[in-house]
Design a protein around this nucleic acid. Structure first.
Length: 553
RNA sequence: UGGGCUAUCGCCAAACGGUAAGGCACUGGACUCUGACUCCAGCAUCUCCAGGUUCGAAUCCUGGUAGCCCAGCCA
């Protein structure tokens, strides 16, 4: 067996070089979300990347909540994040950390900087601070409080800590360079006063460290070697390095940036998803129209399919937007061989087999997945009256239409050949019944080879079928209009929720469990809503419409 | 002449000076108990542009162009 040659991505190259040159003797990565929302497909890229690297190089993968800003964080989110990452299969073993558990060490680190003359307490207001910071093209100017004595700074910082000050009254700043072309280096704030109840530390602290100060410390404490983050932090790297250098950590971690995952025609971006949830445009964080991990799970995506997807997308520093079709490919690819396929009719029309004895029923052995016999068989009742898909019959078929039309014979999947003899219309001209005769000899699996048919259609036994209400979701984004407007608002597709009433499914659905009920409908799939798998509440994947249209040339 | 980063097929993405991998999508054709799947075939004489160095450049140099990020007491 030969494995395809997979080239190493740029991060792997950096890691291997570091290992070879002895900068590190192991690899330790982490996934450090802020618990301020649910995870989505974009986070999956980071999780799988970090976890994958740790595994590949026999290192360790840490899970860490970067909870340094209590205003946005909730335990609801930490719970959901843990659930989602576990589901994705990333294993942090016993290394689940909270940045908030390092507050004491961060405080000590700040004191150390002050003692080194590398940090000072500043009284400038937020507005003044902005003014002093300068602009993108002009340098900033130094704060009048920049040269306070170490003793005074120590005292004031302690006052900040000991609840002697109001929010925003004073901050602690790193003393770097107000003229730096990199704005992040213009004496960035590293600690602020905020009287907030923290989801983990409660009211113990009234000062909180800023990301740029906290993150490198968190990484260093945990012995992270490669701190992988997204592109927008590139400008922060000099500050990251400044912090670990001034704090004199041995073997300091190294920050590496990669491009975020964007998908065409869907909404990524936590703040937008949050908005859709909060405004009630979608039903919640796991609404099937979203690409949150919870939503994808509910729709029937498997962890394998998402891992495969991330792997296929690759890692680079180029901003890019991956075609949604790639995600769909990955789930099809996984489901294809691993899940049973059952029959269901979305838009039914009755098919009556005139020469099949009335009242008789036989239970056919149906293979769950013709491409994977290990998935076994099930019994499906077959009788005189069936439902077939409305689009599988045409009164006047176009050329190259292989399905049912007067005089034509097709195969009923897993059952018999059936020939259309006549049909019935109602007063409005709608077809209500299709009448056929079946050929008992041409039973599937009987080895019948006398005749061949060009078409095969799926069906469901009318008296035994379970009638269900089906929700068919369309993309939340208006594909024509694009995702975002110029003002940053989202183009929501007004038809993103469609209800189809008469759906009929095989009786086998009765015992169907959340994840083992993937179906092909014509050429697509649909799946049961994993959140509530009762047959009355089927959620059809958008994948249903995928590849399902048959073009007549 | 603020700084940082990025530009390779419709979409991702390799190639690390030796003559443009692969996947998705698409298009033919074969096969078929799902017009799916599978299988075969096709799909960048060319790498944002313009010069230059070299026997040889997507890769090096020079100069442009385009896009993304940065002026939160968010992360």
């Amino acid at each position: 067996m030969e494995e395809a040659v997979v080239s190493k991505n740029f991060i792997e190259q950096i890691i291997e070089k570091d290992l070879a040159e002895g900068h590190y003797d192991t690899v330790r990565t982490r996934f450090p979300p802020e618990p301020n929302g649910y995870l989505h497909i974009g986070h999956a890229k980071s999780i799988i990347l970090n976890y994958g690297l740790a595994k590949k190089y026999n290192g360790q993968f840490n899970m860490r909540f970067d909870d340094t800003n209590p205003t946005k964080e909730k335990t609801e989110f930490v719970d959901s994040i843990i659930e989602d990452i576990k589901w994705l299969g990333a294993d942090w073993e016993d290394r689940l950390f909270f940045a908030s558990n390092y507050f004491e060490q961060m405080y000590e680190a700040a004191v150390k900087l002050i003692k080194k003359g590398k940090a000072y307490v500043c009284d400038l207001t937020a507005d003044e601070m902005r003014e002093y910071r300068g602009t993108l093209t002009e340098p900033g100017k130094e704060s009048p409080y920049r040269n306070r004595s170490i003793e005074e700074n120590l005292q004031l910082f302690e006052d900040m800590k000991n609840d002697k000050l109001k929010d925003g009254e004073k901050v602690l700043r790193a003393k770097i360079d107000m003229a730096s072309p990199n704005i992040n280096m213009r004496d960035p704030i590293i600690y602020r006063v905020a009287h907030m109840t923290h989801h983990n530390t409660g009211d113990k602290w009234c000062i909180y460290p800023m990301y740029d100060f906290a993150h490198p410390i968190e990484d260093a404490i945990e012995g992270i070697t490669h701190s992988i983050c997204t592109l927008e932090f590139e400008d922060h790297r000099p500050l990251y390095d400044w912090v670990v250098t001034e704090l004199e950590y041995e073997n300091p971690p190294k920050q590496i940036e990669f491009a975020k995952l964007y998908l065409t025609n869907v909404i990524t971006g936590k703040r937008y998803i949050k908005k859709l949830v909060e405004e009630g445009i979608v039903d919640g964080w796991d609404d099937p129209r979203l690409v949150s991990i919870a939503a994808l799970r509910r729709r029937g995506f498997t962890p394998e399919s998402i891992r495969k997807f991330v792997e296929l997308c690759g890692i680079s520093k180029a901003n890019s937007s991956v075609d949604y079709a790639m995600l769909e490919y990955c789930i099809r690819e996984d489901l294809k061989l691993t899940k049973p396929r059952m029959m269901a009719i979305l838009d039914p029309i009755k098919l009556i087999i005139d020469n099949y004895p009335e009242g008789e029923v036989e239970y056919l052995d149906v293979t769950n997945n013709l491409e994977n016999e290990e998935l076994g068989i099930r019994k499906v009742p077959f009788c005189r009256e069936l439902y077939i898909e409305r689009e599988d019959f045409m009164e006047e078929p176009p050329k190259k239409y292989f399905r049912l039309f007067p005089g034509n014979e097709v195969r009923l999947m897993h059952a018999y050949f059936v020939k259309c003899e006549s049909f019935v219309k109602d007063s409005d001209g709608n077809i209500t019944e299709v009448h056929c005769t079946y050929d008992k000899e041409a039973k599937c699996g009987s080895g019948f080879v006398e005749r061949k048919v060009k078409g095969t259609i799926h069906w469901v036994p009318a008296p035994y079928a379970i009638k269900s209400e089906v929700r068919l979701y369309e993309n939340i984004v208006d594909e024509e209009a694009g995702v975002y407007n110029e003002d940053g608002s989202i183009n929501v597709n007004p038809n993103s929720l469609k209800i189809l009433k008469d759906c009929y499914v095989e009786p086998s659905f009765n015992g169907a469990k959340a994840y083992d009920s993937y179906q092909f409908v014509r050429n697509g799939f649909f799946c049961i809503d994993a959140k509530d798998s009762t047959p009355d509440n089927l959620v059809f994947n958008r994948i249903v419409s995928l590849k399902s249209s048959f073009k007549i040339k």
